[in-house]
């Protein structure tokens, strides 16, 4: 089931990336916040991947080319502003997508109806930090701008139709852009310019093509399970 893999891999991979902040976040509250968001996403991933097949085999035993997540979620954390930019782009998208799936009658409706309420908190968290960093000091503004600019080219891929999700992708995109624009304006930041589609844009994660850092992330994520199959504690 390709859609379950696409949505499940988005949640799994972003969860792992956010988990990498454990022990490194700038303040304790953020350590806890990012870990909580990671936990919500992991729960969603488990439900979604289980719709497709065995969750552990899918998470730990697939090769890079078999993952169907968008390239945005596999991007390394960078500094805190970079992570917040990734959170803003993705959680805004995920909330709008889950809202639509929750109202549908497809296999994802129960999970989406549950998870959309969790994701609303993730989006709220990202928006607050975008405002604080964008409308903060010169340094924080500059770092937030850099993060938003660097990840912009990965956002076009979010709106490539996923087979099996009955969603109007262009209205989803318009709603996303309206929301992002409004947050960035309030944060005294400009909506990035630059290509999001075509030759210079990134994005073929849904087809199994991933960026270089993803392989290293998977190696770390899968290492224990592959070295000690079936290990428990």
């Amino acid at each position: 089931m390709t859609a379950a893999l696409a949505l499940g891999d988005d949640a799994l991979v972003l969860s792992h990336r956010l988990g990498e902040w454990a022990g490194r976040a700038p303040v304790l509250e953020e350590e806890v916040a990012l870990a909580n968001i990671a936990l919500d996403l992991l729960g969603q991933a488990r439900v979604l991947l289980s719709l497709a097949d065995d969750e552990d085999e899918l998470a730990y035993l697939r090769e890079e080319r078999a993952f169907r997540n968008v390239q945005l979620v596999e991007q390394p954390n960078g500094d805190f502003a970079h992570t917040i930019a990734r959170q803003l782009y993705f959680s805004t998208y995920q909330e709008l997508l889950y809202e639509r799936l929750a109202h549908g009658s497809g296999p994802f409706a129960p999970l989406a109806a549950k998870a959309v309420k969790e994701v609303a908190y993730h989006r709220d968290h990202a928006e607050h930090w975008t405002l604080r960093l964008g409308d903060g000091t010169d340094e924080s503004h500059e770092r937030m701008r850099r993060g938003l600019d660097a990840l912009w080219r990965f956002t076009g891929e979010l709106f490539e139709p996923v087979e099996g999700c009955e969603v109007e992708w262009h209205t989803l995109h318009d709603a996303w852009l309206t929301r992002i624009t409004s947050v960035l304006e309030r944060a005294t930041l400009a909506v990035p310019e630059g290509p999001r589609r075509g030759g210079w844009a990134a994005g073929a994660g849904r087809q199994g093509i991933h960026t270089e850092p993803f392989g290293r992330m998977l190696a770390e994520m899968q290492h224990l399970h592959r070295s000690h199959p079936g290990a428990t504690w």
Partner: peptide, 30 residues
Amino acid sequence: GSPVPVALAVRCPHCGSTETELLSRFSSTA
């Protein structure tokens, strides 16, 4: 309608005051 309430006063469970502030949206459990 919003799953993220922002403006509601939350009463302190220790002294009952409604003068409380948010430190973090996330805490010891989800």
